[in-house]
């Protein structure tokens, strides 16, 4: 049986060979929420309810704001009610701008 190799020892030669079955990016070194946000970006939730469930799990207000901002920017079709529910996950000072974005018809055309 071969000894287990560190992931970088597998990833580096694979990256050099152009194989894409392994992650060629540097491992996440940030906080748990920052690393979770990387995954969030890589596989965005399909519905606002799913997004809300995932984002509510973040405790870092910056990560929450980035996730809500990204998701609502990419899902302009979201209804004002669904958008408002996502904005409700943010700190009070951030909610006003978030609500404007999700409820203003001119920004969602």
């Amino acid at each position: 049986m071969l000894p287990a190799l560190p992931s970088w020892m597998i990833a580096v030669p694979c990256c050099l060979l152009g194989w894409t079955t392994v992650s060629c990016t540097a491992p996440c070194t940030g906080s748990a929420d920052i690393c979770a946000f990387e995954k969030f970006k890589a596989a965005l939730p399909a519905t606002s309810a799913e997004a809300k469930a995932v984002i509510s799990g973040y405790t870092d207000p910056v990560v929450r704001a980035a996730a809500v901002g990204l998701w609502t920017r990419l899902h302009r079709e979201v209804s004002p009610d669904e958008g408002s529910a996502l904005c409700g996950l943010l700190e009070a000072e951030s909610q006003r701008g978030c609500l404007r974005r999700v409820t203003s018809p001119h920004l969602n055309r």
Binding site: G30, A65, S94
Partner: peptide, 15 residues
């Protein structure tokens, strides 16, 4: 701490 990602950095600076 957020400087590795533009979306996170933007959210932090806005905050």
């Amino acid at each position: 701490a957020y400087a590795g990602d533009e979306d996170l950095l933007t959210a932090c600076v806005i905050r």
